[in-house]
Amino acid sequence: MSVSGVCADPVVRDQWYALAAVDEIGADVSTRLLGLPIGYGLGPGGAARAWRADDGAPIPARVSYGYLWASVGEPPAEVFDVPETREPDRRIFNAGTLGLAVSAPRAVENFLDIAHFPYVHRGLLGDEPHTEVADYDVVDRDGEIWALGCRFHQPRAAAASTEEVVAQYQYRVPHPYCAMLYKSAPGHPDRLDAMGIFTHPLDDERIRAHLFLCLLDDVNTDATIRRFQQTILAQDMPILENQHPKRLPLDPRAETPVRCDKTAIAYRRWLSSLGVTYGVIPAGAG
């Protein structure tokens, strides 16, 4: 299906991918995107530039939400909308970028999963004996997956938390390889913090994961918030990297019922219905 990791899947190829936080880009960078060697950098005035490494031909590049995005195919006019980024009192920044030996769909699925919180993020995002995931709704909204009404008992839900809470969660999957999470914002009872995982797939088994933050926290420094989020990310690493196979199996009979997480099942179905073949093991391929 994929020759030496280069992507032949048009659905995945024709997407935008966040390569790096703009304020972390210095000199031009050589990397790979979907198996293809590319370069990227910032031109005069901070304009995004990206090119194929083999012949130097330019490829689509842009800046959105503080990241440089590029595509090795024919991407849509805009990156998916994150309306919260237009609210002036939010702080928008990259919590960190971490290289992971895992496919993008595995990383997105982990981001969507609540059930692992008490085991992997004990004392922060979850705690025993509060391991039960209460029922919630998964719906299709304009072709995106939304999980609504998730609630979970959390000892320390965010850097700004001062007490344990029952945190409200919503998930949104607007892109095959990116997901957003909305959760209770400490000190802002009527609004939700927004954060996202934007993956940069180096190939179908290796990614760089950016953790995008769009928060209402007006207490903590960037460094404090980053530390909290990087801790969470690092706790996920051994779990993520030890999943076999590294690509996500889409066959409904695969890996059930190890985790009967509704959002994960909807995500796998959605990838199937989009016809995604890269970074996954399509149903019926085994």
């Binding site: 085991y119 801790t231 990310l233 690092a234 706790q235 051994p238 779990i239 030890n242």
Partner: peptide
């Protein structure tokens, strides 16, 4: 532990 170091009895490998 530190993040990424699994406590005893939890390690997958």
């Amino acid at each position: 532990t530190m993040p990424g170091v699994i406590a005893l009895g939890e390690s997958p490998w």
